[in-house]
């Protein structure tokens, strides 16, 4: 992974976790969104969360 990507590990971590948590709140408060969309967004959030760790591990920073 390039060092450039590693610089954005925290923004990736933030957006990933934020998406997962926001969807949890949507479920809790019963916001009317199709369940499929929620699942897709949680998955995207988890992928970003994983990416944030992986780009960090590849860097020497």
């Amino acid at each position: 992974m390039s060092e450039n990507a590693a610089r954005y590990r925290y923004p990736l971590f933030f957006v990933g976790s934020f998406l997962m948590l926001i969807m949890a709140f949507f479920l809790h408060f019963g916001v009317e969104v199709q369940e499929l969309y929620i699942e897709i967004i949680v998955l995207v959030g988890f992928v970003l969360f994983v990416m944030s760790m992986v780009v960090g591990l590849g860097s020497k920073e």
Binding site: Y10, F14, S17, F18, L21, I22, A24, F25, H28
Partner: peptide, 20 residues
Amino acid sequence: WRFWSFVILLIMSLGALTWF
């Protein structure tokens, strides 16, 4: 913004742990 966004994440996570 990094620090404050982290605080927001922490508060949201505690909320999520309580509700789920």
